[in-house]
Design a protein around this nucleic acid. Structure first.
Lengths: 202, 202
DNA sequence: CATTAACGATACGGGACGGTTTCGTATCGA
DNA sequence: TCGATACGAAACCGTCCCGTATCGTTAATG
């Protein structure tokens, strides 16, 4: 958010208040257009305004430009994280791996690939991306540590490398359709089992 | 190529022949601009023409538009593949994994991320991408088969999943800088060793 | 009811591009 | 030498977009 209406204890400014519906509609319109295949920079303020049923001025009243609006919209997209049950390390890992690129919001999986170039270009987007995935990495890290504590996993493994091993295959398949012959349904289980076999305590 | 000058046995058309220098310069200019951070659709024919020291008409004489030109330019980018030595399966795998996203042309690694959205949008780009990586997958597949023949690797593993396990971590790190704490130098060795430990014959 | 500010709609100037055409020039084969 | 063709440069037009300004209208406060 880049404006003032957010202060809850504001001394109630006079005049007509900003429409919360408009806020929602604008963000939703932007995400919808992206999910429908529009590129980030093919996306225009005009198109967003038209889709949201809103005047352009209403958008410029809230955000400085396309960049600020998108950063804001993407923040709301991330959705909720999968929560591992804590019973079996293997099951928890399969759950986490299967959740990669599977956000609650179905638009997310279509939008993500569009952001790859941005992540490399803009430090802001890079930070945003890291902020989104950092808690998920932390979740996986904790499950792996639990596996070590339980004696299932060797204690001398490199946690970060292991997480990359679990995440990488799923990510390239979901984002890039890297290998058309791979089955996304069974991939999480296959990945987890193979990696576990490589890092299990003997 | 989308025109006629390419026929080697052509009955030598009259008039001034097309400049090979211009061909080169146009393609190089397009790749340079992409590598410098321009987005695919921020890239304009005008910019390419200016950079190549060429008139726009010269470009339109050869290609139907930006799309055709880019497809053509990317085809020339792929560079040569790493060739495994054939001595040690482990060393060969490390070489192949280390070569992911490391093309001869240094521009390739900067351009690749820009193509991710395109791969999802355009069947042409998807095919192009698959054509580029298919031979590399085949190379890795053969090394893994050798490992099976030598009795190093279990015979019942899923080759495609194994390749995804080897490729994924390296790819997300090189393309996405997925985890800033990972060391790209040592990653190939760590990945190969962990995966090998998971699929080795016992 | 008066005030105040946000609303949707619309118009505007400025700029970027795409694609085409027209220059005068350069380079080939005949 | 001559005709044919490609060349780089420039001009042109139509389209799209941005960012701002200005309508009359609407919704809250007091």
């Amino acid at each position: 958010m880049s404006d003032m209406t957010s202060n809850a204890d504001a001394p109630r400014s006079p005049g007509r208040p900003r429409s919360v519906r408009a806020d929602e509609a604008i963000v939703e319109a932007a995400l919808d257009l992206l999910a429908e295949g529009s590129t980030i920079e093919a996306l225009s303020i005009e198109a967003i305004a038209a889709r949201a049923g809103v005047g352009k001025a209403t958008i410029y009243r809230r955000w400085a430009g396309k960049e600020a609006l998108l950063l804001d919209a993407l923040r709301r997209l991330k959705g909720v994280m999968a929560q591992p049950e804590g019973h079996s390390v293997r099951d928890d890992l399969i759950l986490l791996v299967g959740a990669i690129g599977r956000n609650v919001d179905p638009r997310a999986s279509k939008i993500m690939p569009c952001l790859v170039p941005e992540v490399n270009r803009s430090p802001d987007h890079f930070r945003l991306y890291q902020n989104i995935i950092a808690p998920r990495r932390q979740l996986m890290r904790e499950v792996l540590r639990r596996g070590i504590d339980e004696g299932l996993i060797r204690a001398d493994i490199d946690l970060e490398v292991t997480m990359a091993l679990l995440t990488g295959p799923m990510l390239i398949q979901r984002v890039l359709r890297w290998n058309p012959e791979l089955d996304e349904q069974t991939l999480p289980e296959q990945v987890v089992d193979t990696v576990l076999a490589g890092i299990q305590a003997r």
